[in-house]
């Protein structure tokens, strides 16, 4: 009874300074809606109805292609909650996100949290291909268990290639069945919320940011390529979002100053 669904979207410049969405295909529990964008040059897509997915055994995917020069923000209406589903012995679910960002294109990929509910088993994979002048702002947050419950099993992998070369490759594994020590002093130290914010921008090629601590459990680090990564752990989703929001604001303001100043 498991679901297999791949939602697709494609963003292109509309020729009038804005961005068109010639492809916007919802699938299964993944409904894509064009929503109002606060910025004229950007199109905005909101993933709605992801609340009750994926269940163990589901195979969900989103493919987004941001053509040269297009600008797109993707967010979601609610957190994604990985759930065990009806059968306790179900297969793990998979959730695959494939993103392509073309020359001069911009993608802000800012979904709500991924919550790993007790008994769930999810493999989340995000793969991004960035053109050399493409820009990406990407946020990922993993919340281990709904309020007060033990976490499900969750592995995530985030792989970003820029100009065909690896820029960032990170794999996290938590919960029952994960290799030992995942909650110990080297990995999470008892924290239940983990997040990453990646900003890749060719402007960092000439002006890389210095590494900086953002409090005791978060750091902003320049990658080997033109990008910065914020890595944070926190006690809960709200505290984590606070850290990432502050960082995002500061990073975007910094780039604005950089590009106009």
């Amino acid at each position: 009874m498991s679901v297999r669904a791949t939602a697709r979207l494609r963003a292109e410049p509309d020729g009038r300074g804005g961005t068109a969405l010639p492809v916007l295909e919802s699938a299964g529990p993944l409904a894509l809606r064009r929503t109002r964008s606060p910025r004229a040059a950007y199109a905005r897509v909101t993933v709605v109805g992801a609340m009750s997915a994926p269940l163990n055994g589901d195979r969900l995917a989103i493919e987004a292609d941001i053509a040269d020069g297009a600008r797109l923000t993707v967010d979601s209406a609610a957190a994604t909650v990985a759930l065990p589903g009806a059968r306790a012995d179900g297969e793990p679910s998979t959730y695959t996100v494939e993103l392509g960002v073309g020359e001069g294109a911009v993608l802000h990929w800012l979904p709500e949290q991924l919550v790993s509910a007790r008994g769930s088993d999810l493999r989340m994979t995000t793969r991004v291909r960035l053109a050399p002048t493409g820009r990406l702002l990407l946020r990922e947050e993993q919340i281990l268990g709904r309020h007060g419950e033990p976490t499900g099993a969750l592995t995530t992998r985030l792989t970003v290639h820029r100009a065909g070369r690896p820029l960032l490759d990170q794999q996290l594994a938590y919960g029952p069945g994960a290799p030992g020590g995942w909650d110990g002093p080297a990995v999470l130290g008892g924290h239940r919320a983990v997040g990453q914010l990646l900003l890749a921008d060719p402007a960092f090629e000439d002006a890389p940011l210095p590494a900086r601590l953002l409090g005791p459990t978060a750091a902003l680090t320049p990658l080997a390529g033109p990008a910065v990564l914020v890595t944070a752990v926190a006690a809960d989703a709200r505290l984590l979002r606070g850290i990432l929001d502050d960082a995002m604001r500061e990073l975007l303001d910094g780039l604005k100053t950089e590009q106009t100043g």
């Binding site: 794999q171 999470l188 590494a211 900086r212 601590l213 680090t221 890595t231 944070a232 752990v233």
Partner: peptide, 18 residues
């Protein structure tokens, strides 16, 4: 090749270096 990572090791490495 695997890319397994440990958030706290990455964060505290930056703190320690300073």
């Amino acid at each position: 090749l695997p890319a397994a990572s440990a958030p706290l090791l990455d964060i505290t490495a930056e703190a320690h270096a300073a």
